[in-house]
Design a protein around this nucleic acid. Structure first.
Lengths: 244, 244, 244, 244
DNA sequence: AATGAATGAGTTTTCATTCAT
DNA sequence: CATGAATGAAAACTCATTCAT
């Protein structure tokens, strides 16, 4: 851990802001508190940032950039590599895998990616918390949480959905799947991050135990998506396909 | 719908507060804004409420009371009735069902209850949003969201867990189940409520379509809990039991 | 003089602002100083005015309205009355007087009007000073001083010019006349108002002596406009007419 | 025109200050703005000037010195030369010209001088504007504008008045003349300078047209002073002499 | 039940100025 | 010469709350 005295002032301000915003919310945090925690003068905060809001923006944007980079990284590591290996084809409307093994491989990578994302959101859980707080208000960062991992639209970037679709060639996207994905994949993940510390405190579990327990729970969802997709797809898929 | 002019002032203040707190957060809302929206003077707000905080308390407590009542209602309607019918026994550590049909009946009721809860959280989604905003900060209402449907502890009120446990008599509670329940049952439900309006706006779905899609998604989780419980229970249950 | 304690707070704020803005300039005046002088709290100032700037706006606009009213009054008292009496005709491009006596009468009225204006600008010399200070900066009140008595454009409202033109039927407006009017009628008048107190102090004259001396000086200008108009009009009028 | 990059830093600071002070007033200008416009750092400004106020002082004093030099120049070129030529005598209380031709010559020179002054104030109109802004406030530069061409007192430097007095040997200074001189000679001149750009913009006249129009207007005043002085002198002079 | 006026104690933000390098 | 970093003091403005009526 870096000596707090030696940390650059600007970074101290950002760290103090993360800590305080995530604890007390943006509106609940005073610039003077940030100054105190960061051990700088109020005026210096305004030397580095035009306003309190700019601090928030800075935090939010740095997280979003970071997240986007991680997604890109996944795409390049997995998709691009598999294409190069001739195991995956990008068709206009879906991903086409060479064989069952390729699907297995992809799913495994997705799993690894999920775990990666989990660790990412845990590491940045304070900023995620800030983002979630803002996403609940009609602030300017209103829907940047949704952007964070935007699976709500069925566009090219929505890889997990494509994966599922690849399992069943008859499949085409349904609102059900998107809803499921958002509320049963993204939300739990983000909620896990923002309630991580609190849940630990209440349950008495260690961080690692909690993380493991959550990962196991997630596996149920993953399996459901494969074994139980007839619930989502077979029963309602046809109707849903024509709905919007 | 009641004429806004004729609404009693106090109620107008409460409604304005719900609207504003859920939109801008408690800290982000000014008493003068409440006065404006409620079409009363600031001074009148202080005639009815001792402080801004008392308004929040009032809202939070009314929701919590309400929620508790609903749970009690479920318990009485289902548990108590089934006991009276001799189809259910409350043992010190678990519920004991007379037969498979009783379980089926209970699960069905639980499903109905879930839908009831869904409608409840949808109706009060603004207050839920307020509560969630506060739960993310370390305010005094910090963990009242957890209380709302406290399934994190394995106490008598934790009915769904008991139900699952009843399906497999060998079963005993594991942290995994609690984690699963919290992050994959309660959180999605609450997130659905708080992001309901926004998701509608982004997806273009009608409220009803969205509600139906969410309920179908929930069914996957329910089924997972039965068919997929070996993942949660058989594999890790023993270890987890001894973990904490 | 009204008891300062009994004056309404808002008026005390305005008076304090006039005093301070005219002494120290708008930028040089602190809201806390206004509060002190007005014997109110800073917060009360913000109860009555949205911002420091709004106080300035209020002062400026009230003066401008007032001034406009005075001009209107002159027009109605003189022009309208003379028309009713059949001594004046408004032609599309100029005023037409019945006879020399009508012109004399009009000029006499203009003289009276000038004196009236003089007393007006003297009474409101502090606000005029504020306005002049602002007019010298590129603030939003930049050219409201020009509007105050806008003789810079040769439109219908420019009565004095029309009067002069009426004296010599051959005459038509020239930029020279406008320039003369602005810099040798309006500016001296306004400068007299804003430097009134200071000139008194430096010269040792009483207010009344100064006012009388200034009025006599103005008469020279008035006469110049009649006897000396050949300088302005005859020599250069033709060229100037075609210039812009 | 010198390349802005190559201009010395100090000069750039002064030019930026002139520009900004005349645009926004001294109080309305931030040191950081000066730094920006001058393309130097704030710290460098403090390397060259002890304080923001020192910049203003520097500008004001350089103008005043300059103006004094110009007056001195006039005195030497005209007065001193005429004395040497034996055409002018300085009596204790007045100037004594040898003959009508000497008066004519002097008046002509005064006219030339007026034009010179006009060009001077036009060149330095931004600083004049600053000075006028300050003269309207009770700053330390309060009455330095009056000093600029102090004709308010009947001392030796008041050349134009002496000139007029010389025309009529019966004449002695009256407050009327001083008032006339200040409000109808100096003020218009200064106002012309400070409103020069704005008047151009509003009227659509070119700088040269405007300057010419103003000079013609001034001639009326000059002539008035000779032909019309009976108004000022004969009628009221005696009384006024005894007034204070 | 209702309110216009008032305020203390903050809040965010600004700004002339300094200092170490 | 030159500057990036830093700051004390004070500026404008806010806001929950109170009070007299």
């Amino acid at each position: 851990m870096v000596n707090i005295e030696q940390q650059q002032a600007k970074e101290r301000i950002l760290n103090a802001s993360i800590q305080l915003f995530s604890q007390k919310g943006y509106d609940g945090t005073r610039v003077s508190e940030i100054a105190e925690v960061a051990k700088v003068t109020k005026a210096l905060i305004y030397y580095y940032f035009k306003s309190k809001e700019e601090i928030l923006d800075h935090l939010v944007h740095s997280l979003l950039e970071n997240a986007a980079a991680m997604t890109m990284d996944f795409i390049h590591t997995n998709i691009v590599q598999m294409i190069k290996d001739g195991r995956l084809d990008i068709l206009p409307d879906r991903l086409h895998f060479m064989d069952k093994a390729a699907i297995e491989c992809f799913l495994e990578n997705a799993q690894v990616y999920f775990e990666q994302v989990l660790d990412y959101v845990l590491e940045y859980r304070q900023i995620i918390r800030i983002l979630m707080l803002e996403s609940l208000k009609d602030s300017k960062h209103h829907n940047e949480l949704f952007q964070l991992m935007d699976f709500t639209r069925s566009d090219e970037g929505n890889l997990i959905l494509k994966t599922i679709s690849a399992v069943d060639q008859e499949f085409s996207y349904s609102h059900d799947l998107l809803v499921f994905n958002f509320f049963y994949t993204i939300c739990p993940l983000l909620n896990f991050a923002v309630y991580y510390d609190e849940y630990q405190a209440l349950s008495g579990l260690s961080g690692n135990q909690l993380r493991t327990a959550f990962l196991r729970s997630s596996q149920i969802i993953f399996r459901s998506l494969i074994t139980g997709q007839d619930i989502l797809l077979k029963n309602h898929g046809v109707k849903l396909k024509n709905q919007v």
